[in-house]
Simulated assay, not measured.
Amino acid sequence: MAKSRFNEGPGPSQRQLRVSELIRRRLSDVLNQGDIHDPDLNRMSITVGEVRCTPDLKIATAYVLPLGGQNREEALDALRRNRSEIRRVLSKGLQLKFAPDIRFAIDETYDRLDETRRMFADDNVRRDLDSD
């Protein structure tokens, strides 16, 4: 059986977590400072919620969300269009042997939180919880 690029074990290693957090912080700084030469991207306020790296640290997936959750596809398109420049700028601020390939995805954490709150607010669920 072929070995997957993604860690299917108990979870990411300490090194993966540390590098992911470094990339998340640096990417947030780059996007906030407007270091990318794309006016469409620089006018957007984008939150970087999480970054996950593969075990070999060659691919980093950044989970992002535009402020207010509006224009998600437009933000993803702008990030993907400028991926190579973002990678170049990120690599200057990180002390890694190789700059990882950056992929972007929408962070759906807040949507899941809203759905969970909605479920707990449902009368049937509230009744079941109160009966315990």
Rank of each mutant, 00 (worst) to 15 (best):
D29H: 12
P12T: 09
D35G: 00
R52N: 06
A75S: 13
R80L: 08
N32L: 15
L67H: 12
E21A: 07
L79W: 00
N32K: 14
R25I: 10
L22I: 01
D132K: 09
G9R: 07
I86A: 05
S20R: 06
E74S: 11
Q16D: 12
I23L: 13
V64K: 03
D128V: 00
E115R: 12
L65V: 02
L57I: 00
D77T: 10
E73G: 04
T61A: 09
R127G: 10
R103A: 10
L90T: 04
V51I: 07
P55I: 01
D122N: 14
R87C: 13
L129N: 07
D114A: 12
L90S: 05
Q95Y: 12
V30E: 08
R26Q: 15
L129G: 09
R87L: 09
V19T: 12
E115D: 14
D122C: 01
E21G: 03
L17Q: 14
I36N: 06
E73L: 11
R88C: 02
N7I: 08
G9V: 06
Q95P: 03
M1V: 08
S45Q: 03
V51D: 06
D114F: 02
M119G: 00
Y63W: 09
P55A: 15
F104S: 01
Q70L: 11
E115C: 01
V89R: 08
D107E: 07
L31M: 05
A75P: 01
S91D: 11
R25F: 07
R26S: 14
R127W: 08
L76C: 04
G93N: 09
I46H: 10
D130Y: 02
R43K: 14
H37A: 15
F104H: 02
R126E: 11
R52H: 00
E85G: 05
V51P: 05
G9M: 08
S84Q: 15
A78S: 14
E74Q: 15
V64A: 04
T116A: 15
N82W: 02
Q16M: 14
D107G: 10
